[in-house]
Design a protein around this nucleic acid. Structure first.
Length: 288
DNA sequence: AAGTTCTTCAACCGCTCCTCG
DNA sequence: GCGAGGAGCGGTTGAAGAACT
């Protein structure tokens, strides 16, 4: 037996609200408040609507402090940052955006922002895989690596992705950053093959701004059962390397992970089987 | 100009959480 | 501690308008 419905569906109106209904709800709440009881409110306000419907209409549309219209770049940044930190907790995200509702933020993410982020990632990936043949690519040669730098088209330079995600404190290196490569630290995060990008707590490739760090991660969900490690080296080397020492160690996982998410490409034929060069494309991961 | 497809967003649904008796 | 009922939340739907063929 299912849960009883919150109202008598046969006797309530559904669908879009008329201006008259809006007016009735608005004036009732403005003069009486919600009374802390949405279920009883429609009858008091003279509306043939479900209480939940009234609540939604008020919170998402009629409330006086609602902000309508397009989202700003700053709001984009906040949404992306929080989404990457906490996932689809729209009410929490909306609470950081004055005048925005959870429904608004959710719709905006699902219809626009998600595509924007995916397009930027696709751009990054395409430039990694085709950068050597691009006529607009400039190439810098260092001792051990080729660094391809392809300017992104203006429409795809998205500050949200480029800066905000990685300037968040949660992505900074752990406090014992910089310990020796032979004794990688374990910052306590974990991720698996299905972890959404970017996994909460994982730093971006820090070598590109000159800092060095060594991080232990698990390629599987249970970090306690594996001791694989990842070293992110300094800007003069521009590479990550990894070892898979414990139960669950998985070289190919790291190769895929750093390629798919950070644009690192596996080095071949140089006697460095667990090493990937940092191919910097679209300026996306440089500024953190 | 007409038909089709795509996009947007308000609204609904069903579930979990919270409060209160 | 337990259960009922309301509030709140996130996923999904579908109507309307825009864009495309």
């Amino acid at each position: 037996m299912g849960r009883a419905p919150c109202c008598d569906r046969a006797n309530v109106k559904r669908g879009p609200w008329s201006p008259e209904e809006d007016m009735a709800l608005k004036s009732y709440i403005e003069s009486h408040g919600t009374g802390g009881n949405w279920i009883a409110l429609p009858q008091k306000a003279g509306l043939r609507r479900c209480g939940k419907s009234c609540r939604l209409r008020w919170l998402n549309y009629l409330r006086p402090d609602i902000k309508h219209g397009g989202f700003t770049e700053e709001e984009d940044n906040i949404i992306c940052t929080l989404y990457n930190k906490i996932g689809s907790r729209w009410s929490v995200i909306a609470s950081q955006l004055p005048g925005r509702t959870d429904n608004d933020v959710k719709n905006y993410w699902n219809t626009k922002l998600k595509k924007k982020m995916m397009a930027a990632q696709a751009f990054l990936y395409n430039n990694i895989t085709s950068s050597s043949s691009s006529s607009t690519t400039t190439t810098t040669t260092s001792n051990t690596n080729l660094i391809h730098h392809t300017p992104a088209p203006a429409s795809l330079i998205i500050p949200t992705i480029k800066t905000e995600i990685y300037t968040c404190d949660d992505f900074l290196a752990p406090s014992n950053e910089g310990s020796s490569a032979s004794a990688p630290v374990n910052p306590g995060f974990m991720f698996g093959h299905n972890t959404p990008f970017p996994p909460a707590g994982l730093v971006g490739p820090p070598g590109l701004n000159g800092s060095a760090g060594h991080y232990a991660v698990s390629p599987h969900d249970d970090a306690s059962t594996a001791s694989s490690s990842v070293n992110m080296e300094n800007s003069s080397n521009n590479y990550v390397n990894w070892s898979a020492n414990g139960p669950g160690g998985d070289d190919s996982f790291f190769a895929e992970f750093f390629n798919d998410h950070y644009g690192y490409q596996e080095k071949t034929g140089e006697g460095a089987p667990n090493q990937a060069t940092a191919t910097v494309a679209a300026n996306m991961w440089i500024t953190f």
